[in-house]
Simulated scan of single mutants.
Amino acid sequence: MTRPGTSLFGLVLALAAWLPTLAHAVDCRSLTVDENRFTICQVDASRETIRLFLRDDQGTVLGQFSAVAELLDAKGQRLDMAMNAGMYHQDRAPVGLYIEDGQQEMRVVPNAGPGNFGLLPNGVFCIRQGRADVIETLRYINEKPACRDATQSGPMLVIDGALHPRFLPDSTSRYIRNGVGSSADGQRVVFAISENPVTFYEFGSLFRDTLDLPQALYFDGKVSRLYAPQIDRDDAGFWLGPIVGVVSPVQ
């Protein structure tokens, strides 16, 4: 049964899209829900390597997908997909929690604040061996999961199957937006970016109603970008802070 406001046509399209077993490290495709267009990239976290990137080996902020790809290429690895992954300051340092390969650069920020990041509840995208989870920030602080990589952003889009309580169906605030959602077992991870400006309510509903994911986190708007070579996509634009990527060895 679909929830109010859900496009049955869009739901059928989405289910048909995700039923086949993934043939690639990342499965990216277009999706239309209630006349809003999205690009969705699904990853099996139990089989693929998801990582965060901020700086190169000399400590310089990478800032672009091409810089991440070059860094990996030098190590015999390939960047299969990437997306901006959390809000950052003018110097591109993370606003909230940031852990990369076990090293914490920025602490978790639990309190409310200005902007979308401080619109509580916000959350953490936590990457561990064999799984990746969106976790609401206070739950993250309480449970203390051992994340190999983690980035904090906000607001949460979906919390335990419910949309963020501040999202309004009749909102007029529309932006290109991107984010990530995870299944309850942390195996299915879906990255999404809108192709036209959407509201928070519409974007959250994509994860909850169409993709059937119980947890989802907003990464950003305005600067939202995607790298997905399998669909010939490499978005240009602003220099970025944290970047999330799917990595595989070069065969």
Rank of each mutant, 00 (worst) to 15 (best):
L120K: 09
S66G: 10
Q64R: 15
Y140K: 03
Q42V: 11
A17L: 09
V247L: 11
L11V: 08
V33D: 03
D170V: 13
D220C: 01
V250G: 02
T49A: 07
V158A: 06
L97M: 02
D27Q: 12
P229R: 06
D212P: 00
H164R: 02
V247T: 10
S7F: 08
R128L: 13
V134I: 06
G186V: 09
G118Y: 09
G115K: 03
M1R: 10
S183F: 02
V198D: 06
A23T: 14
R92M: 13
S194E: 06
E143N: 07
E48N: 07
L213T: 08
L52K: 15
G204S: 02
P197W: 08
C126A: 13
S171N: 00
P155D: 05
L71E: 13
L71C: 08
D220I: 01
N36W: 08
L15T: 01
V158C: 04
A162W: 09
E100P: 01
G186F: 13
G123P: 11
W239N: 08
D160G: 01
L138S: 12
Y140Q: 01
F125L: 10
M83Y: 10
V109L: 11
R128S: 14
Q251E: 15
G115T: 03
P169D: 00
G59E: 15
R107F: 06
A45R: 05
M106C: 05
N84C: 08
D232E: 12
G113F: 05
F238D: 06
Y88I: 00
G186S: 08
D44E: 11
T210D: 04
E202W: 01
M106H: 13
T60C: 05
S194P: 04
P169H: 02
M81Y: 15
L72K: 15
M81L: 14
Y140L: 04
F38G: 05
P121K: 03
A184V: 12
S248R: 14
